[in-house]
Every structure is written in structure tokens, then in C-alpha cells.
Design a protein around this nucleic acid. Structure first.
Length: 272
DNA sequence: AGGATTTGACCGCT
DNA sequence: AGCGGTCAAATCCT
């Protein structure tokens, strides 16, 4: 897979993360409707970005072919992958980096499908609000260099800017795919505490007996999963009630249909 | 106790 | 020199 395909895949995976978040939100909470809309917009944004990348890549590929360039030169290399990272101090401005994307929303995006660890907060000049710095929770474990910055940019109405830098090389997204799917009797949960999350129709479970990555994730997403557990384990008949169009804008619902979007696609699915 | 967050210091870039 | 990104010790939280 070349870097642009990987970039596009990352966008799609991020979109999936947002979609997951969207799916697990308590849609009975009226005050979360704005956040749902913002997440839905993020999903659309990610799809648009992925499409743009793929279209651009296709054009570049065609250009390369017309220029008779060698096949190994046809994969554009991300600028960031060439830049050496300093151990400490300011790099070339992150916002000047080519591989970032920015979302603006009325609520800060804390839960976007990835696990983040805050590593700094700073008052930015000519801004009334502080900027928070996050890096992927698997930075050390898996050398994942994805980062994000969250900053309130407007007070009334509240507006938050979330900027993502770099790409997840961690296996978190694959952990979703490696959660065991329970094919046994749904009543038989002996020895493992099954937590169902995501789309109620997908029989998608996390188990306390899965690998450490999954455990880590399930510990750190307690808030999410607890309410999912509460909602879906106690009311299995919710499956009948689920409909994307109920709490997605029609725009998003159409996009999901158009993409035949499945929030549990794996990176393998996306790359094949 | 261990992990996450806060916060002041440090560092490189402009 | 000032600014912004990062580090790491201190502190907080569970």
C-alpha cells in the first residue's frame, strides 16, 4: 500500500471511529444532538478527504504514466515522513505540516474512536483560550505518532477546533476487528464479561479475555462502554429500534448508504 | 499503586 | 526574544 492509500485509509478509519462514536451515543439525550451532528459531519468530512486523496492519487498516477516515470517513483511520499523528528522543542510549525486536517465543531471532539493522552496545554498568544495537546495513547507501545490539538476558538456560540496531525500506525483500529465475535449462545457468558458495543445488529462484543490491547482499550473507554453496556445488554430489543435516519441527518444517512458504510470494516477490508 | 493529567521548564524555530 | 511544541516532575484520580 502506498502512502496515499494509507492516508486515505486513515481518513476512512477515522471516519469509522467517528461513526462508532455516533452509533454508541445515547440518542435519548437531547443535549447531545449537536455533538451527534458534529460527529456526523466529521464522518462526512473524512469520507470527502479520503475521496479527494484517492482522486488526486489517481490523477497523479495518470500524470506519472503520461510522463513515463518509473513505477517506484509513482508513490508520493508524505512530506512529514521525510522530516526528522526532534526529540524536544519546536518542530517546523505543526500547522505548516502537510499531513493534518482540522475540524471545527460546537463541542470539543474528545471521543473520535482513537485513544489519546494529553501531554500539554498552553496559552496561545492572541487567543483567549488554551490549546490542549494530545498524542496517541500507543505512542510508546507501538510508535504511533498521531497527534491532535484541541482549542476553543470562539466563546459565543462555542466553537472548538480539533486539528489532527500525522497518521495512526497503532493497531487500535484493528483491535476493533480482532474482538471476538460471539457466535455462541448469547446466554452463555461464563468466564468472560461480554460487553456489546456498536451497532446492535452486528453482535459485536468485547471480552475480558482478549489481548492486552483490547483490555487497555476497554479500560480506557469505560465511559463509552459502560453506557453501551447499560443500553444494549439490558435492552437487547433495542436492535429493532436502531435506524441511522433516526438521529443522523438525512445528508449523513445518504452518505452512509452511498458508501455502503459498515462501521466495523477492518483495515484489511479497506485496503483490499 | 499505577495510570492520567497538569503545569512549569526547556528547546528550536523565526 | 518571543512563540509554540514537548518533556517530565508533581499532582490528581480511580
Amino acid at each position: 500500500m502506498n502512502s496515499c492509500q494509507q492516508k486515505a485509509m486513515e481518513k476512512l478509519l477515522h471516519g469509522r471511529g467517528c461513526a462508532n462514536q455516533l452509533l454508541v451515543m445515547d440518542h435519548t439525550e437531547s443535549d447531545s444532538s449537536m455533538e451527534r451532528e458534529d460527529l456526523a459531519k466529521s464522518v462526512l468530512h473524512c469520507f470527502s478527504d479520503a475521496l479527494s486523496i484517492l482522486i488526486d492519487t489517481n490523477h497523479e498516477h495518470q500524470d506519472d504514466q503520461s510522463n513515463n516515470s518509473s513505477p517506484q517513483d509513482s508513490s508520493p511520499v508524505l512530506e512529514s515522513s521525510r522530516k526528522p523528528l526532534h526529540k524536544r522543542g519546536r518542530k517546523a510549525s505543526m500547522a505548516e505540516s502537510s499531513d493534518y486536517h482540522r475540524h471545527e465543531s460546537s463541542t470539543p471532539i474528545y471521543h473520535d474512536g482513537f485513544l489519546w493522552r494529553k501531554y500539554g496545554q498552553k496559552q496561545i498568544k492572541e487567543s483567549d483560550h488554551q490549546r490542549s495537546y494530545y498524542k496517541c495513547a500507543y505512542t510508546k507501545d507501538q510508535n504511533c505518532e498521531a497527534k491532535k490539538q484541541v482549542q476553543k476558538i470562539q466563546h459565543n456560540p462555542p466553537l472548538y477546533s480539533t486539528t489532527y496531525f500525522g497518521y495512526h500506525t497503532c493497531q487500535l483500529h484493528q483491535a476493533y476487528a480482532t474482538f471476538p465475535i460471539d457466535t455462541s449462545d448469547p446466554e452463555d457468558h461464563e468466564g468472560s464479561h461480554m460487553i456489546r458495543f456498536g451497532h446492535p445488529n452486528t453482535s459485536f462484543f468485547s471480552s475480558s479475555s482478549t489481548n492486552s490491547l483490547c483490555q487497555h482499550q476497554s479500560q480506557n473507554q469505560n465511559q463509552n462502554q459502560n453506557h453501551i453496556k447499560d443500553e444494549y445488554m439490558t435492552t437487547p430489543d433495542k436492535a429493532e429500534e436502531w435506524s441511522p435516519s433516526q438521529w443522523m441527518s438525512s445528508e449523513v444517512a445518504h452518505a452512509v448508504e452511498a458508501f455502503e458504510f459498515n462501521p466495523f470494516w477492518t483495515s484489511h477490508d479497506l485496503s483490499s
